[in-house]
Amino acid sequence: MNQYLLSLLALIGGAFLALQGSLNAQLGLLLKNPLLASLIAFCSSTCFAFCLVLLTTKHYPNAIIIREVPIYLWFAGGLFSLIGISLYYYTIPKLGLSTMISFGLCGQLVFAVIAGHFGWFGLPTEPMSLQRLGGLVAMIVGILLINLK
Protein backbone atom coordinates (compact mmCIF):
# COMPACT_ATOMS: atom_id res chain seq x y z
CA MET A 1 0.00 0.00 0.00
CA ASN A 2 1.44 3.39 -0.90
CA GLN A 3 2.24 6.14 1.59
CA TYR A 4 -0.60 8.43 0.44
CA LEU A 5 -3.27 5.79 0.92
CA LEU A 6 -1.84 4.81 4.31
CA SER A 7 -1.83 8.50 5.34
CA LEU A 8 -5.45 8.86 4.22
CA LEU A 9 -6.44 5.77 6.20
CA ALA A 10 -4.69 7.21 9.27
CA LEU A 11 -6.60 10.50 8.87
CA ILE A 12 -9.89 8.63 8.55
CA GLY A 13 -9.01 6.55 11.62
CA GLY A 14 -8.35 9.74 13.58
CA ALA A 15 -11.69 11.21 12.51
CA PHE A 16 -13.45 8.00 13.56
CA LEU A 17 -11.73 8.13 16.98
CA ALA A 18 -12.93 11.70 17.48
CA LEU A 19 -16.44 10.67 16.39
CA GLN A 20 -16.57 7.65 18.69
CA GLY A 21 -15.16 9.74 21.52
CA SER A 22 -17.93 12.30 21.23
CA LEU A 23 -20.69 9.70 20.85
CA ASN A 24 -19.48 7.60 23.78
CA ALA A 25 -18.85 10.68 25.93
CA GLN A 26 -22.50 11.58 25.30
CA LEU A 27 -23.47 8.02 26.30
CA GLY A 28 -21.42 8.41 29.49
CA LEU A 29 -23.21 11.66 30.30
CA LEU A 30 -26.64 10.15 29.73
CA LEU A 31 -25.76 7.10 31.83
CA LYS A 32 -23.97 9.34 34.37
CA ASN A 33 -21.02 6.95 34.25
CA PRO A 34 -18.13 7.26 31.74
CA LEU A 35 -16.71 3.91 32.86
CA LEU A 36 -20.02 2.21 32.00
CA ALA A 37 -19.88 3.91 28.60
CA SER A 38 -16.40 2.43 28.16
CA LEU A 39 -17.68 -1.03 29.04
CA ILE A 40 -20.52 -0.72 26.52
CA ALA A 41 -18.14 0.58 23.84
CA PHE A 42 -15.66 -2.25 24.43
CA CYS A 43 -18.40 -4.89 24.40
CA SER A 44 -19.81 -3.61 21.12
CA SER A 45 -16.28 -3.30 19.71
CA THR A 46 -15.64 -6.90 20.73
CA CYS A 47 -18.75 -8.04 18.85
CA PHE A 48 -17.77 -6.11 15.72
CA ALA A 49 -14.17 -7.34 15.87
CA PHE A 50 -15.34 -10.93 16.41
CA CYS A 51 -17.54 -10.75 13.31
CA LEU A 52 -14.74 -9.23 11.21
CA VAL A 53 -12.27 -11.89 12.37
CA LEU A 54 -14.74 -14.63 11.44
CA LEU A 55 -15.29 -13.06 8.01
CA THR A 56 -11.69 -12.24 7.15
CA THR A 57 -9.34 -14.70 8.90
CA LYS A 58 -8.30 -17.77 6.94
CA HIS A 59 -5.69 -19.14 9.36
CA TYR A 60 -5.79 -18.88 13.12
CA PRO A 61 -2.70 -19.11 15.35
CA ASN A 62 -1.94 -22.57 16.66
CA ALA A 63 -1.24 -23.47 20.29
CA ILE A 64 2.54 -23.12 19.84
CA ILE A 65 2.21 -19.54 18.60
CA ILE A 66 -0.28 -18.67 21.33
CA ARG A 67 2.06 -20.00 24.05
CA GLU A 68 4.91 -17.86 22.68
CA VAL A 69 3.01 -14.63 23.31
CA PRO A 70 4.17 -13.06 26.59
CA ILE A 71 1.41 -12.96 29.22
CA TYR A 72 1.51 -9.16 29.56
CA LEU A 73 0.68 -8.70 25.85
CA TRP A 74 -2.69 -10.40 26.38
CA PHE A 75 -3.74 -7.72 28.90
CA ALA A 76 -1.58 -4.58 28.82
CA GLY A 77 -3.06 -3.13 25.63
CA GLY A 78 -6.58 -3.60 26.93
CA LEU A 79 -5.71 -1.97 30.25
CA PHE A 80 -4.12 1.08 28.61
CA SER A 81 -6.98 1.27 26.13
CA LEU A 82 -9.50 1.25 28.99
CA ILE A 83 -7.65 3.99 30.83
CA GLY A 84 -7.15 6.16 27.74
CA ILE A 85 -10.65 5.78 26.34
CA SER A 86 -12.31 6.24 29.74
CA LEU A 87 -10.31 9.43 30.25
CA TYR A 88 -11.54 10.63 26.84
CA TYR A 89 -15.16 9.95 27.78
CA TYR A 90 -14.71 11.67 31.13
CA THR A 91 -12.92 14.78 29.84
CA ILE A 92 -14.70 15.47 26.52
CA PRO A 93 -17.91 16.75 28.18
CA LYS A 94 -15.84 18.90 30.57
CA LEU A 95 -13.26 20.29 28.14
CA GLY A 96 -15.00 20.04 24.76
CA LEU A 97 -14.14 17.78 21.85
CA SER A 98 -11.47 19.90 20.14
CA THR A 99 -9.69 20.71 23.41
CA MET A 100 -9.65 17.11 24.60
CA ILE A 101 -8.64 15.67 21.24
CA SER A 102 -5.88 18.26 20.78
CA PHE A 103 -4.41 17.52 24.20
CA GLY A 104 -4.88 13.79 23.67
CA LEU A 105 -3.08 13.91 20.33
CA CYS A 106 -0.30 15.95 21.88
CA GLY A 107 0.18 13.27 24.54
CA GLN A 108 0.17 10.56 21.88
CA LEU A 109 2.70 12.32 19.66
CA VAL A 110 5.08 13.29 22.45
CA PHE A 111 5.06 9.72 23.73
CA ALA A 112 5.39 8.33 20.18
CA VAL A 113 8.43 10.51 19.40
CA ILE A 114 10.15 9.50 22.64
CA ALA A 115 9.28 5.79 22.22
CA GLY A 116 10.35 5.92 18.56
CA HIS A 117 13.66 7.58 19.43
CA PHE A 118 14.55 4.79 21.84
CA GLY A 119 12.92 1.99 19.82
CA TRP A 120 10.72 0.93 22.73
CA PHE A 121 8.42 -2.09 22.40
CA GLY A 122 10.50 -3.69 19.65
CA LEU A 123 9.49 -1.06 17.10
CA PRO A 124 11.85 0.50 14.56
CA THR A 125 14.08 3.27 15.90
CA GLU A 126 13.21 6.75 14.66
CA PRO A 127 15.99 9.02 15.96
CA MET A 128 15.13 12.46 17.33
CA SER A 129 16.07 15.24 14.94
CA LEU A 130 15.74 19.01 14.84
CA GLN A 131 12.92 18.56 12.34
CA ARG A 132 10.99 16.26 14.70
CA LEU A 133 11.64 18.54 17.66
CA GLY A 134 10.46 21.52 15.58
CA GLY A 135 7.31 19.59 14.69
CA LEU A 136 6.59 18.90 18.36
CA VAL A 137 7.10 22.57 19.26
CA ALA A 138 4.85 23.63 16.36
CA MET A 139 2.20 21.17 17.50
CA ILE A 140 2.30 22.46 21.07
CA VAL A 141 2.00 26.04 19.80
CA GLY A 142 -0.91 24.92 17.62
CA ILE A 143 -2.63 23.32 20.60
CA LEU A 144 -2.21 26.52 22.58
CA LEU A 145 -3.73 28.49 19.69
CA ILE A 146 -6.63 26.03 19.31
CA ASN A 147 -7.40 26.33 23.02
CA LEU A 148 -6.88 30.09 23.38
CA LYS A 149 -10.13 31.76 24.43
Rank of each mutant, 00 (worst) to 15 (best):
L30A: 12
S44Y: 10
C51Y: 13
G21I: 05
L123F: 09
G78T: 10
A15H: 08
F75R: 01
L31S: 05
A63Q: 14
P93G: 00
I83H: 02
F50T: 03
T46I: 08
H59S: 04
R132D: 06
L30G: 12
P34D: 07
F111R: 02
Q131I: 14
G84A: 00
F48R: 13
C47F: 11
I40F: 01
L30K: 06
M100S: 12
K149D: 10
F103A: 08
L11V: 13
H117M: 14
I143A: 01
S129C: 13
L105D: 04
I71W: 15
I40Y: 04
N33L: 10
K58W: 12
F42R: 12
I65M: 05
S81T: 11
G21L: 11
K58Q: 11
M139S: 10
I143P: 00
S129H: 15
A37H: 11
I40M: 02
C47W: 15
T91F: 15
L29Y: 13
A18D: 06
I101R: 04
K149N: 11
A138F: 11
L133N: 03
R132L: 05
I143E: 01
K94I: 00
A37P: 06
S45N: 12
F50C: 14
G96M: 14
A112E: 06
Y89C: 09
C51Q: 04
H59D: 12
N147K: 02
L87K: 04
H59F: 07
Q108R: 14
L145Y: 10
Y89A: 11
L73R: 03
G119C: 09
P70H: 04
G78E: 06
I140C: 03
L79W: 00
G84T: 00
L36A: 01
